[in-house]
Simulated assay, not measured.
Amino acid sequence: MQRRDFVIFGAACGLLSATAVAAPVAGTALSLPMAINKSGRLRMLSQRSAKAWLLLVQGVLPERGRSILHQSLASFEQILGELKSLQPGDEIRGLAQALEQEWRACRPLLVDIRSDAKAIWTHNEAVLAAAQKLTVAYEKVSGTASGQLINLSGRQRMLSQRMAKAYLFRQMGVNAAEASSMLDASMKEFAKAHETLKAASQNTAQIKAELALVEQQWFFFQNALQLTSAADRVKAASDVGTTSERILEQMDLVVGLYERL
Rank of each mutant, 00 (worst) to 15 (best):
A119H: 13
K235M: 07
R114E: 14
G154N: 04
L69D: 01
I36M: 07
H194C: 06
V254T: 10
L42Q: 08
E82T: 15
G147I: 04
L152N: 01
Q222R: 14
L99G: 02
Q217K: 15
K118N: 11
A52R: 06
A26Q: 15
R157V: 02
A23F: 14
V57M: 10
E91S: 12
D90Y: 07
S72Y: 01
G27R: 15
E178S: 03
L183C: 05
L55V: 00
S72W: 00
G59W: 10
D232M: 14
N124H: 11
R66P: 02
L253D: 05
Y167W: 09
K118F: 10
L168I: 11
W103N: 01
F221D: 09
L32Q: 06
N223T: 13
S85T: 12
N175S: 11
G241L: 03
L15T: 07
K165E: 09
M251Q: 09
S72F: 03
K38M: 04
Q206R: 13
L134N: 00
R107N: 07
V127K: 07
I79N: 02
K133V: 04
T135K: 02
L168F: 10
Q206C: 09
F76G: 00
I8N: 03
I79S: 00
D239L: 15
L261V: 13
F6I: 13
I113F: 13
C13S: 06
I8H: 05
G59F: 06
M158H: 04
L248Q: 07
M172W: 06
T122P: 03
A126Y: 08
A185E: 04
Q2F: 11
L42N: 03
Q97K: 14
L110G: 05
A131T: 06
T19Y: 12
G143Y: 14
D112F: 14
T144E: 09
V255D: 05
A236Y: 00
A129C: 04
K198W: 00
A29S: 07
H123L: 09
D5T: 12
R260K: 15
E245K: 05
M163R: 07
K51A: 01
R246H: 11
T144F: 02
A117D: 08
T196E: 08
N124G: 15
V21L: 07
T242C: 11
A105M: 12
S39T: 00
E77Y: 08
L253Q: 14
A164W: 01
R260E: 15
V255A: 01
S31T: 14
K198N: 02
E82L: 10
R260N: 14
A231P: 03
V7L: 15
C106Y: 14
V127C: 12
L109Q: 06
H194E: 05
H70S: 04
Y258F: 12
E245D: 11
G89V: 12
I36D: 03
R260P: 05
H70V: 07
A137I: 05
Q217W: 13
G94I: 01
R66T: 07
R64K: 15
T19P: 06
I8C: 03
S244I: 10
P108K: 08
L80V: 03
L168D: 02
